[in-house]
Design a protein around this nucleic acid. Structure first.
Lengths: 233, 233
DNA sequence: ACAAATTGGAGAGCAGTGCTCTTGCATATG
DNA sequence: CATATGCAAGAGCACTGCTCTCCAATTTGT
């Protein structure tokens, strides 16, 4: 099945794909830190030095896996979003947040790779940043859509002063036009809360305090909806 | 200075302490994953096999470092708390949350060790759980103190149903007596938000969206205060 | 106080790792 | 068709965690 005749370029992308999928399979068993180039090669019936033709270093392979993970998570969130275009903002937030959480539980090691401790002495190249943005864009869109249209009020219990220059303005104005400043700032809380929850759940920090994580997640998402959705929703 | 005569028992605890502090020093340079028993030994002028007399395995050394890190963070939070016994709850939350964040920035690799991705195939022993509780206890105390005394109202914008059995009841009733159920549930949001923030900041996820992390942290803590403090505060 | 038992350091050694370099063959290009 | 490039193989280097044996120093039991 893999001994079909192929041009050199085709063979190359095929090898790269095989290396990545083999790595993902091995990573699913024992996690990213234990991922070994030699084992990947062995698994593919290849000699270890051959891997270096495709990934000059282990970190390069990890970078590729990180980008793929971000994209996979982003695509998964986008699909969830597409499935609930009709719903109200609160419902959409539940659906998308739930899809993020489910992806993380299905791919715990890949989640740890992108949202766990970064590899020390490793700076994420620009490539990864673009891929990382996809999932946050989906969340931002939910909030922006909810505020499209009119006279809706901010649910502020206490007035919190928003300092100018606290957030980067560029991205926000394009992605969340017409959304109050305080809500933009709160949207970032929602974002980090969702991932904070998933990390705490996956990494075992809720053991001893949260019993029913499914119900608690619903509660958290509801509270987050209260934070960023306009009063009429 | 270290060749003083010592009993065997004394020498043993001294060696254990030296191994741990050397490990911490090396970890500060290149992170936990790169921590090598052989390098620790070399640094101590010891042969590598001797380390195994004290820590039968690398994971055991890491476990010890994890427990120490939890305790160090917990003690730091407790000290911050002691420094603001006089303040109002909101101020105390700012002080303690700030001390957590500062500890994390001062000890990034140790933070990553306890709140980053867990070592795959490694179950935290009971010891670590007790140590991990200290910092959360400080946060819980702030909320509990704020509610001590009387007719204060919950800041609920929308009624969120709290399902029975969502949280573990045991710990909460002892630590946060007289606090409404919804506030207990929200206290966990505050807790994970603080650590979610610190993780996102330390691991670089705010790059591109948050510009002034100091100000933004203040904003987040204020919002969290609004979530769990009674209306009169 | 002396023999016995325990402890801890030294050193060699094993299987594994990431990575480099050279060799030789297959493919693509002028 | 000759030449240049691409890629697999294999040996090798420096490193890792961990085990085992050996031996000296200390602690313990009588």
């Amino acid at each position: 099945m893999s001994d079909v005749r192929r041009s050199r370029a085709e063979a190359r992308v095929h090898q790269i794909e095989t290396i990545k999928s083999t790595s993902r399979r091995l990573m699913a068993k024992s996690g990213a830190p234990a991922l070994s180039l030699r084992e990947v090669a062995r698994e593919m019936g290849l000699v270890s030095s051959a891997i270096y033709r495709y990934f000059p270093t282990r970190d390069d392979l990890l970078t590729a896996l990180i980008v793929d993970a971000y994209n996979d998570l982003g695509a998964s969130a986008e699909r969830a979003m597409a499935r609930c275009v009709e719903g109200d903002p609160r419902r959409r937030l539940h659906v998308v947040a739930g899809s993020i959480r489910r992806w993380a539980k299905r791919n715990p090691h890949e989640y740890a790779l992108i949202y766990g401790s970064p590899i020390p002495g490793y700076d994420a190249p620009e490539l990864t940043i673009a891929a990382a943005t996809r999932v946050t864009l989906v969340l931002a869109t939910i909030v922006a859509d909810a505020w499209r249209g009119a006279e809706k009020g901010v649910r502020a219990v206490v007035d919190v002063p928003i300092h100018d220059g606290m957030l980067e303005r560029r991205g926000f104005e394009r992605v969340m036009p017409g959304v109050p400043d305080v809500t933009r700032a709160r949207a970032i809380i929602v974002w980090s809360q969702i991932f904070g929850f998933v990390s705490f759940e996956l990494f075992g920090h809720y053991k001893g305090s949260v019993r029913n994580t499914n119900r608690y997640f619903d509660f958290v998402v509801d509270e987050m909806a209260n934070l960023v959705l306009p009063t009429s929703v």
